[in-house]
């Protein structure tokens, strides 16, 4: 092999390294969130069964369920699995106190979020469904008495809802916890045809 051959071979080798590095980098960037999310969802399922809400332990210096939590929030989580029915979330809202709901996929991505400002006549009624469940429910609708429910189609059959209430003053934590606990979250059977 002469000199130029050697240089070309080394260059090719070097380009090979760069190509592999690039592919590894891209794959790692895309895989990382899914790996992190799996851990989050497993921890949520350890707290609550699907269709049940559980209040998250308050963030303290020594214990925290999630990093970067806001200590002024009291939060609960309600995982769901739509294979056994749709999920109904109901909340009664009163006063100018922040209550927010976010509907998420297993990976934690929000597909819908709302605050108490979106309540109709002091009530929030949300039903999370699969597209097939929505068809069944819509077929049963009474045209003269339309349902007041907000119907959301979940992108995946599993996910979770985060319910948050803000304790505007340090003394309001217990009251905020009551507000979070008063939000009902349950699996509803969808009548099969």
């Amino acid at each position: 092999m002469n000199r130029i051959d050697r240089i070309l071979a080394a260059l090719l080798w070097f380009l090979g390294i760069l190509a592999v590095a690039g592919i590894t980098h891209i794959v790692a960037i895309f895989v990382l969130p899914a790996v992190a999310a799996k851990d989050t969802f497993a921890r949520i399922l350890a707290l609550a069964q699907p269709g049940q809400a559980a209040v998250l332990p308050p963030a303290r210096p020594d214990t925290q369920f999630m990093p970067f939590a806001d200590p002024a929030l009291v939060q609960s989580v309600c995982p769901f699995d739509l294979s056994s029915g749709s999920l109904r979330v109901h909340a009664d809202v009163e006063g100018d106190r922040l209550l927010s709901l976010s509907f998420r996929t297993v990976a934690g991505q929000v597909f819908y979020s709302m605050t108490d400002l979106a309540a109709q006549q002091g009530k929030i009624d949300v039903v999370v469904l699969t597209p097939a469940q929505l068809e069944i429910v819509e077929a049963d609708d009474d045209e003269d008495d339309p349902s007041q429910d907000l119907r959301l189609i979940a992108p995946e059959s599993k996910g979770f809802v985060i319910i948050s209430a803000l304790a505007a003053h340090p003394g309001e934590h217990a009251e905020a916890e009551e507000r979070v606990k008063s939000v009902a979250c349950e699996i509803e059977q969808v009548a099969q045809e």
Binding site: P33, A37, T40, M66, P67, A69, D70, V77, V110
Partner: peptide
Amino acid sequence: RSEASEIDPYSRAILAYSGKISLSESEAMS
């Protein structure tokens, strides 16, 4: 909107790694 689906893969990976995909993040603009 930290966790909204429009976010680019880089930001999503950074948020996931740093734990900033916390439960409170998308309730607020942080």
